[in-house]
């Protein structure tokens, strides 16, 4: 079993239009590295200077990872990782 990652519309250019893809890893950082290996260009949209980019929200199952360790958040097989664009402005 793998980890299922939901990809938002804006990033589907990196996944050939797929809404969700599979990845592996035991932390969010590893999942993102695995995504990058198979779908080049995703990592720079998600991570900036070693932390999650402020333009995205990332959830493991129902948990916003900003409250559960950020890139160090634990993930395991069968988990769902959801990426959503942050909706914000001034």
């Amino acid at each position: 079993m793998a980890i299922t990652v939901s990809i938002p519309t804006i990033l589907r250019t990196h996944t050939g239009g797929q809404k969700s893809v599979e990845a592996a890893g035991t932390t969010l950082a590893q999942v993102i590295d695995d995504l990058e290996a198979n779908h080049g260009g995703l990592k720079s949209r998600l991570v900036k200077e070693g932390t999650l980019h402020r333009f995205v929200n990332v959830y493991v199952n129902d948990e916003d990872v900003r409250f559960s360790g950020g890139l160090d958040a634990a993930v395991k097989d069968g988990d769902n990782v959801t990426i959503l664009p942050a909706v914000a402005g001034g």
Binding site: D64, T82, L84, A86, A88, G90
Partner: peptide
């Protein structure tokens, strides 16, 4: 009054 952000939990 000068900024907004969807609440991340509600957004999910």
């Amino acid at each position: 009054p000068t900024f907004y952000r969807f609440d991340a939990t509600e957004q999910l």
